[in-house]
């Protein structure tokens, strides 16, 4: 009997490049959905060794761990090193909710000079640098799927979506990237 477990992702083997944009599934990462009131922010920031952002649309990062502001009491934590974020929060006694969603989300890296146009095909937000600067993140919609957009550089967005929406999101990005108009 074979005893080897292999991790399969919904976008394994997919990638797409067109003029001005490249789509590639991001490496698996540890993710945490963190909800906490103002009284727990300090303790959680200390435990995670990064200060949770408190301004709308903002992010903070420490090494490969990043915290994305999603709402007044909600953050998405992404650790590209795959560290156990649940363990980091476990000792905090202040009231908070931490849920490991590492396997619920997948991410797609969208890069290239046309990245804004391609995302604008499905996202109604203003994605210009002025309204969506580098380092900004926002939960929004892409077509019919809810996504979290995180602008990591001028020409690089990370699109986080739910695993079951990944095929749809990737397909729609691909269609948008293929359409030169």
């Amino acid at each position: 009997m074979v005893e080897v477990l292999t991790r399969t992702g919904p976008l394994d083997g997919r990638s797409f490049a067109a003029s001005g944009v490249r789509l590639s599934p991001a490496e698996p990462a540890a993710r945490l959905s963190l909800r906490a009131g103002g009284d727990a922010v300090k303790a959680l920031s200390k435990a995670l060794a990064l200060s949770l952002p408190l301004r709308p649309k903002s992010t903070s990062a420490s090494g490969n761990l990043a915290a994305l502001w999603l709402g007044p009491d909600e953050w998405l934590l992404i650790d590209e090193d795959g560290n156990d974020l649940m363990a980091a929060c476990a000792a905090i006694t202040a009231v908070h909710s931490a849920v490991d969603i590492s396997h619920r989300n997948v991410a797609i890296d969208v890069t290239g000079p046309n990245v804004e146009d391609v995302l604008a095909a499905g996202c109604p937000q203003d994605l210009s640098l002025r309204a969506f600067p580098v380092g900004a993140a926002s939960r929004t919609i892409f077509g019919k799927a809810e996504v979290v957009l995180w602008r990591r550089s001028e020409q690089h967005f990370r699109v986080e979506c739910w695993r079951s929406f990944a095929d749809y999101v990737f397909g729609l990005l691909e269609a948008a990237a293929r359409d030169p108009g």
Binding site: G71, P72, S138, R139, I141
Partner: peptide, 9 residues
């Protein structure tokens, strides 16, 4: 109103 696909509030 609810900011359903945003901050959720």
């Amino acid at each position: 109103w609810r900011h359903m696909h945003g901050c959720g509030r």
